[in-house]
Write a protein that binds this DNA or RNA. Structure first.
Lengths: 251, 251
DNA sequence: CGGGAAGTTGAAGAGCGTCAAAAGTAGTGG
DNA sequence: CCACTACTTTTGACGCTCTTCAACTTCCCG
């Protein structure tokens, strides 16, 4: 069984927090606001968010928080990719999601985080003290409503992922994964073209319930059969979307 | 690959709806209110729920709704067990959850259901027209807040299930499953003692990402090693909780 | 009681994991 | 600019867990 060892180059404390409020009208100028929880607020209400937000920047591999740590902050991804994962006692790892611009992190019903979060690429986030954000949620029901909507989306995605983990073959898993990455990129308004796959084979494996080796072999297979093309810089071109879609749906 | 064929004894139309409001003060008398979304409302506000709720009773095997059907209703389980599942094109099935008293069903962000739901045991639910409940949510933010809390719980459970599906062995899966069933029963205030396992081996397999045969074999193994005892009526006695806990955590 | 579904058990096989090594890639410093 | 190192990815050989296919047993419910 494969095990996972954390190797941290630098801790949360060094994560370069800077007040969002330091800028002129940071939330007002936020280019991904329409994707995030903040879309629920009117422009003149955004100052309330400004007032409690702190910007955080992470380098690849930087931890954001660890499972079982007191959940004192909630986060909003503004740039880059964050991976979220849980560990078993012996080190086996399950990545439960890759988050990017607009995604919300830290919705914990407990007082501690239910999972660990770590940067995959250089990433930026808005950090909110839990208590202050909860206060804001009470005063602006439409914020809470927006959050409920996002939670619904996440739940649907989680169920889709359960189908993948429980019932799909390696080939089907990789196919679904690539299509999902492309869909997400499109949803964030990124131009069509090769899909950016910034995470390592190990991360992909831990997300899909496979080993690094199987992920690699499956990519090679899909490449050999002309369904995808592997470009450099972790980019993948989807040559035969129909074949991938058939794989993803189990036909 | 195993396939799944729906065999329906009776459809939704025959599902015996009766107005909750037919009773004197149905919601006020609801014995599982503290578990459900309704716990968010004060006693005098409950009549608002009464006004839009319809009771539904299902026999084992009865469908509640199907994936891709228009999501016109939301539900609250009041008794029995409901299974929720998704199908792949070729019939492979993933059960994403077993729901019981207090659980909420139908939180869809789309206009269609994202999964199918079907009774495992005789079951009762409260049915709410989607639009009317959404109206209520707007007027009572604390209802929405409660729903957000429940969604948070569900998300945490979904992530736990991803760890199980992606990274646990058959033995670990069954161990985790039995402990989770016991924990849920305790959380609903049911007396300690043998765990009730009302679902079939096939349902358990589709929930844990295993085949019927593997589920059966694993139960037999755990029985032989003295960790559990199989009683009649689908009840299981947990003889060695420590061993099960060690299995569940991957040690 | 009898018939059908659900559950159990057995034997054989496949898909993916494990272990190992080679090839590719990136970062570092002389 | 290139060598040196360390890590990631790929490829290969082999083994094991779980699936598949099949037969048998048990449990219900009419």
């Amino acid at each position: 069984m494969k095990t996972f060892e954390a190797k941290r180059t630098r801790g949360l404390a060094e994560a370069l927090p800077r007040r969002v409020a330091g800028d002129a009208s940071p939330c007002g100028a936020c280019s991904i606001r329409h994707l995030s929880i903040c879309a629920a607020l009117a422009p003149d209400e955004l100052s309330e968010m400004d007032a409690i937000a702190t910007a955080v920047d992470l380098a690849p591999g930087d931890p954001l928080f660890d499972e079982a740590e007191p959940a004192e902050h909630l986060f909003n991804v503004t740039a880059g990719t964050i991976k979220v994962y849980k560990l078993l006692a012996d080190g086996r790892r399950q990545v439960t999601g890759f988050l990017s611009a607009g995604d919300f992190l830290g919705l914990a019903h407990e007082t501690t985080y239910a999972y660990s979060a770590e940067a995959v690429t250089p990433a930026s986030l808005c950090r909110f003290p839990r208590r202050k954000l909860e206060n804001l949620l009470q005063r602006y029901p439409k914020l809470e409503s927006r959050l409920l909507g996002m939670a619904g989306h996440e739940l649907a995605a989680a169920q889709e992922q359960m189908v993948l983990l429980g019932r799909k073959t390696a080939k089907e898993k990789i196919g679904s994964f690539l299509l999902a990455l492309e869909r997400q990129a499109a949803g964030r308004g990124q131009p069509a073209g090769p899909v950016s796959v910034p995470m390592s084979r190990a991360d992909i494996g831990d997300y899909l319930g496979l080993t690094t080796e199987t992920v690699s072999r499956t990519f090679t297979q899909l490449k050999s059969s002309g369904v995808i093309r592997l470009l450099q810089g972790g980019r993948v071109e989807l040559l035969d979307r129909d074949a991938l879609a058939r794989l993803a749906e189990g036909q």
